[in-house]
């Protein structure tokens, strides 16, 4: 039996509270990170990602306590991202109990940060979060699960660029070149988010996911666009993702992590059941 494909719920944290409408039927306090983490752990989540979206310094300080609390009770891997600017930030999260730290905007501003952090703490704990947008032409909407063959049919190969600041700021950096460079610098994993698909529920950008996953030797987590369980299957089978990340389908109680895993197993994907 081979390595299981991982299913990773993502939680947005603002000022120490989980936001973005987590709705579990029988949870006492849907905003409590420990309660939400515990629920996903019980459902069989393979890892958890906490994304700190606090705007203020005070807000960002609270994520450390969130990590401490969750890591003290939930014994699965925990990744923390958002607002990581320095090697010291990485160290603080690891000390609080995070297993991996996601670096996004700061890596674009200072790529060597990834090298310094990986040298100090090991590649296994450095996740480079890459936010990508298709720039070769206006995005074609495709039916779920289908690769966008229309792009190739029109002659222009798809190209994607790295965006920062939540997808608002363009960098001019080619995504494939970027992830390969980050792998060389010591990233242990890539968290790839399609900003075109994020929040659309149209499914992953499978061409992007496949292009990135096949271009690096480190694991790739697909993110952005999951609206149904077949999307998760497509992410692995067509996108070649090593792990799939989703937020809203789990938060709003549409599906449990367990249901997602059963669905993937029935589709022939190896998962931890």
């Amino acid at each position: 039996m081979a390595l299981a494909k991982r299913i990773i719920p993502c939680l947005d944290v603002d000022n120490g509270r989980v936001v973005k409408g987590v709705q579990f039927v029988d949870i006492c306090d849907a905003g409590d990170p420990v309660e939400v983490a515990r629920r996903y752990d019980t459902q069989g989540a393979d890892e958890l990602v906490f994304l700190d979206i606090s705007a203020s310094h005070e807000g960002r300080d609270t994520i450390v306590h969130v990590v401490e609390q969750v890591a003290g009770e939930i014994f699965i891997p925990l990744t923390v991202g958002g607002g990581i600017r320095t090697v010291e930030d990485v160290g603080r999260m690891l000390k609080a109990g995070a297993d991996k730290v996601g670096i996004n905007t700061a890596a674009v501003a200072d790529p060597d940060l990834v090298r310094r952090a990986a040298d100090k703490y090991g590649a296994q704990c450095i996740v480079v979060a890459a936010d990508a947008r298709c720039v070769s032409q206006p995005l074609k909407s495709t039916s779920s699960g289908m690769l966008s063959h229309s792009l190739r049919a029109q002659g222009e190969p798809p190209r994607w660029q790295i965006y920062t600041h939540g997808g608002r700021r363009e960098t001019g950096i080619d995504v494939i070149e970027w992830v390969q460079r980050m792998e060389q610098y010591g990233a242990g994993e890539i968290l790839l988010t399609s900003m075109d698909r994020d929040g659309t529920k149209d499914g992953f950008d499978l061409e992007l996911t496949c292009a990135v996953s096949d271009s690096v030797g480190i694991p790739v987590i697909a993110s952005g666009g999951v609206g149904s369980l077949p999307h998760l299957v497509d992410g692995v089978k067509l996108g070649h993702a090593d792990a799939v990340l989703a937020a809203s389908i789990f938060h709003y109680g549409e599906f449990s992590v367990g249901e997602a895993k059963q669905f993937m197993a029935a589709a022939g994907i190896e998962v931890r059941l």
């Binding site: 991982r6 590649a123 296994q124 690096v216 694991p219």
Partner: peptide, 16 residues
């Protein structure tokens, strides 16, 4: 792996 796909390194995740 057994089907000829290149395996990623690090070996990261849940194995039996």
């Amino acid at each position: 792996d057994k089907t000829g796909h290149r395996l990623k390194v690090p070996h990261m995740g849940w194995s039996m």
